[in-house]
Design a protein around this nucleic acid. Structure first.
Lengths: 153, 153
DNA sequence: GCTTGATCTCAAGTTAACTCGAGGTTGCAT
DNA sequence: ATGCAACCTCGAGTTAACTTGAGATCAAGC
């Protein structure tokens, strides 16, 4: 006899929302982004697997770490079957995230140190400022929305 | 006799763009945001003062430091006459920016450290994860666009 | 006086990560 | 069988920091 799917194994979106703390619309949005792929009932309603809760948890944790949904998606697609991460996967991924965080912190620290050297100089010259012009071209931040570090405190 | 305004003291927008490295549209945008206030010719064209170059430089430097235009605007309005910052002003402002940067770095470092404790645990549980749930409610990141630390490398 | 390049305004598009609302359908308990 | 909460889709709105484009006007040299 095969393992039956009990009713409680297929979770509707509202319950997903309650269990993960996300809003219903956010969950739908993640589906649009391709981060989760619920099945559908005959009546076209979403039904999630229990493993999707873990998957969403993973997304939320990674977000707390400052990854964008794009970066998170990339990490997850690196997994063998594109599957919900296991404990082992999580270890691999979290190491790579750590490296990413380290780089970002180093970048900000460098900026702060340059600022220290700048306090009191008052140069305010684009041509000479150590911050604005550290070794020619650090200003690779590109177009579009700029570096946003934090919401206004 | 009064000091005459020589032609070269009133800078048109195109020259501003060349001198600051900004695009013409970005300069207009900054004006819309109230960050700069050029005068107008009889024919309604913008003319900038030399001091506006310093003002724009200041904006660009502060942006490199990770401040939003809103934060920059706030800093500048703190100045005595809402004037283009002098060397002394710059010192005061840069100290306050430094403090801001320090806070942001500390926040990220704390997150990274929590990640370290997490590597290998594989819990992936929203209820128990130290990252997702550090002392109840660190998750004050709010709605709207999330923490974006860096453009994709 | 004419041409040409620089400017002008205003509206709409871009990216990220969602939210909100309208108008319509499903699923489950009674 | 019916009522109603929960679900569905789709389009538009939000914020930040700009860009792009259309259609019109200005400034300056020849």
């Amino acid at each position: 006899m095969s393992k039956r799917l009990s009713k409680s194994d297929l979770i509707p979106i509202g319950e997903m929302a309650r269990r993960t703390g996300l809003s219903v619309s956010a969950i739908r949005f993640y589906e649009d982004r391709g981060l989760i792929e619920p099945v559908r009932t005959s009546g076209n309603q979403r039904r999630f697997l229990r493993s999707d809760i873990r998957r969403v948890s993973f997304i939320l944790i990674a977000q707390q770490l400052g990854l964008t949904l794009g970066e998170i998606d990339a990490e997850m697609r690196k997994l063998p079957q594109g599957r919900t991460p296991t404990a082992r996967d999580w270890e691999v991924i979290s190491r790579s995230i750590r490296a990413l965080l380290d780089r970002k912190i180093a970048q900000m620290s460098a900026m702060r140190d340059r600022l220290d050297g700048c306090i009191g100089c008052g140069c305010l010259s684009l041509k000479r400022c150590a911050i604005y012009n550290p070794e020619d071209k650090m200003a690779q931040l590109g177009a579009g929305p700029r570096l946003v570090l934090d919401p206004p405190v």
